[in-house]
Design a protein around this nucleic acid. Structure first.
Lengths: 213, 213
DNA sequence: TGATAATTTGACCGGTTGGTAAACATTACA
DNA sequence: TGTAATGTTTACCAACCGGTCAAATTATCA
């Protein structure tokens, strides 16, 4: 039989799990570096150390690979925001949200670039995720922030734009890494830039959120 | 004769100027939406309303189009930073820098995305510009900011990361527009989000830069 | 107006790319 | 062990894509 393609069987075999894992790892490497259109199945196959038809045995199309990858990575990507705790100390919560996001940018830049590529080009494959789960989560957390402001625990500010500002400043160090490196030059080539960024951003946001008068 | 290709002649004809203009406008539309690799000459030709060989009469290769486009847009893109005046009032200067960058993101989102696409994928075509003119300009302006901090006119902070933060927060509204729209939802679909962003960002940075104690 | 240069186009080419078909190899399991 | 299901590979195809060429059309100007 030729068809099953890991769908008909109830239980996934050991080989299926291993190979799908290897493929998605390779797909992350390639898609995050060149975008969907700029990536080829051959490139992914080479990184995975498998033949092209073999990849297509596990994922019927290039789109299916991309989709599976996005589904897998999206949850992890949103975890830091989910952890924002309405019961905690507001300023401390936001500070550690920034730190977690920056750690993600440092440790998982490929995941960040995967989404950046996608959104930059109009989010043709993840529009539903943006308008559904993402919006829902942001709405919920924006309400938490708004409540903090109302209670006088942080300065009044637009919670949506605060979240955008935290996203953009932290992800910048993953998505625009080559620019950051180019501007900072050789002397800051190490990972120290993330510590500098953390210090700067925590100060910027924490001072900006302090209640005035 | 078949060859000239707008190079042999000393003076560019009216037709040459018009057509090159049309092509670069179309190229901006397409490259900014799909990235270099994701764009095809046919797409650009269709947007420009010209035939593919006709484009290639004015620009020998796809790369030449891209290169001409980047050269043309880069200067405009860096103008706001150039205008940062060491003689002016520090806080006012930074505030108006933010405002100008945000206006650029609102009025020229395609130009922003053009660079974002390029940098995100490792800046294969503009590495020299990043390490040369861009770094030079940023170094110069970082020194201005550092001097302001040293003179006690603004809070001490890492000037490079301050510039990165301003870049990322403002360009976010151009580069990740679909995400911003998706999260804000229908109700904020108009251009009002740029005014909200301006209010938020000016407050964030200005408060964050106020000298403490 | 006529000749020359500039511009435009349709037909085409070779390489790449996503994807398929079918033969072959390996694994799981009764 | 035998056999059916699963996994892998070779050869291949059709569409696409960057770019060329030569012929045809249009603009320029003496």
């Amino acid at each position: 039989m030729v068809l099953p393609r890991a769908a008909k069987t109830q239980r996934r075999t050991r080989i299926q799990e291993e190979k799908e894992e290897r493929i998605l790892e390779a797909a992350l490497e390639v898609f995050s570096a060149h975008g969907f259109r700029g990536s080829t199945i051959d490139q992914i196959a080479e990184v995975a150390g498998m033949s092209k038809p073999n990849l297509l045995y596990y994922f019927r199309t290039k789109e299916a690979m991309h989709r599976a990858l996005i589904d897998r990575v999206l949850d992890t990507w949103l975890d830091p925001l989910r952890e924002l705790d309405s019961e905690g100390n507001p300023v401390a919560e936001i500070r550690s949200y920034i730190r977690r996001k920056l750690e993600l940018a440092r440790d998982f830049p490929r995941e960040s670039r995967l989404f950046a590529n996608e959104i930059l080009q109009g989010a043709p494959h993840i529009e539903d995720e943006l308008k559904g789960p993402l919006k829902q989560l942001v709405d919920e957390k924006a309400e938490v922030i708004r409540a903090w402001a109302k209670a006088g625990k942080i300065a009044k500010c637009d919670p949506y734009h605060l979240i955008f500002a935290i996203w953009s400043t932290t992800q910048h160090y993953a998505d625009f890494d080559v620019q950051v490196r180019a501007v900072l030059g050789q002397e800051h080539a190490g990972e120290g830039r993330f510590d500098d960024a953390a210090r700067f951003l925590e100060r910027l946001f924490v001072d900006g959120l302090q209640v005035r008068e």
